[in-house]
């Protein structure tokens, strides 16, 4: 039951984040859809860690080089998702208000993805490793 509650609240968080992103694009005074490119970063961000988790055999070690590389890559994707709208705004492609909305959406979405891993990552009876 706890899994269902967590899932519903996380999907709520994802919807809020996407709403901020769409507000940054679609509000009449902004009306430019360049920030939608950060969607790629949202999709890419969990991939390195999932790959590392599958590649690394589950030993007693608390950490290993492959997982740390995956964390490094994930951080890079997250930083890119924040950097892209800022560069757009500095290049006067979008306005600073739209940039701020997109950054807020970024924070919410990445918080949601992190929450997903925290909630379902360590749980034994409903885990990603069964996939």
């Amino acid at each position: 039951m706890a899994g269902i509650k967590a899932l519903i609240s996380l999907s709520f968080g994802g919807a809020i984040g996407l709403m901020f992103l769409m507000l940054g694009c679609a509000l009449p005074q902004y009306n430019t859809y360049w920030p939608l490119f950060v969607l790629f970063f949202y999709i890419l961000s969990p991939i390195p860690y999932c790959i590392a988790r599958r590649v690394v055999e589950d030993t007693d070690a608390t950490s290993n080089a492959c997982k740390e590389l995956a964390i490094f890559m994930t951080t890079g994707i997250v930083v890119s998702a924040f950097g892209l709208p800022i560069v757009f705004a500095r290049a006067v492609l979008i306005q600073w208000g739209a940039c701020a909305l997109v950054l807020t959406g970024n924070t919410v979405i990445f918080g949601t993805i992190l929450g997903f891993f925290l909630v379902f990552g360590s749980n034994d009876d409903f885990s990603w490793q069964q996939w």
């Binding site: 740390e68 490094f72 500095r90």
Partner: peptide, 22 residues
């Protein structure tokens, strides 16, 4: 410790690249 180090290294490295992109 290793996780924190990886995250801060990633932050520094990719912030550097985004500065030059800007």
């Amino acid at each position: 410790r290793n996780t924190i180090a990886s995250v801060s290294a990633g932050l520094l490295f990719f912030t550097g690249w985004w500065i030059i992109i800007d």
